[in-house]
């Protein structure tokens, strides 16, 4: 793991960014952006999840291939959940 990422200050910085992003999500919910509202909220949520996975869960800098396999498997499973669920929502109006 890179040296800078193990210091307490670094983790506090990541935590602060997460708090700011949470505040942004809440703030954005009060502005009417039309269809952009959910896109913005999901975008911010994805960035937050990435920060947690990369730094708090130490995936960035992990040397083990197994760690990456586990992360990829998790993402693949999420894709299955979303993809097959959307197979229903995306084709419901066809008939």
């Amino acid at each position: 793991m890179a040296e800078h990422s193990s210091s307490v200050g670094f983790y506090i910085l990541i935590f602060a960014i997460l708090l700011v992003l949470t505040a942004t999500t809440v703030g954005a919910a009060f502005i009417n952006l039309g269809p952009l509202n959910p896109i913005l909220a999901l975008g911010i949520a994805t960035v937050k999840a990435l920060l947690v996975v990369l730094f708090f869960m130490h995936v960035k800098g992990a040397s083990e291939k197994m760690t990456k396999v586990v992360i990829l498997a998790g993402l693949f499973w999420l894709l299955l959940l979303l993809g097959l669920t959307l197979a229903d929502y995306g084709t419901r109006l066809w008939s």
Binding site: L84, A87, D88, R92, S95
Partner: peptide, 22 residues
Amino acid sequence: GFLVWAHHMFVAGMSVYAALVF
């Protein structure tokens, strides 16, 4: 086992095309 779940929902009003896949 993770690819078959919607067979519990065939009569629930889901898309018939998705039902075929499941």
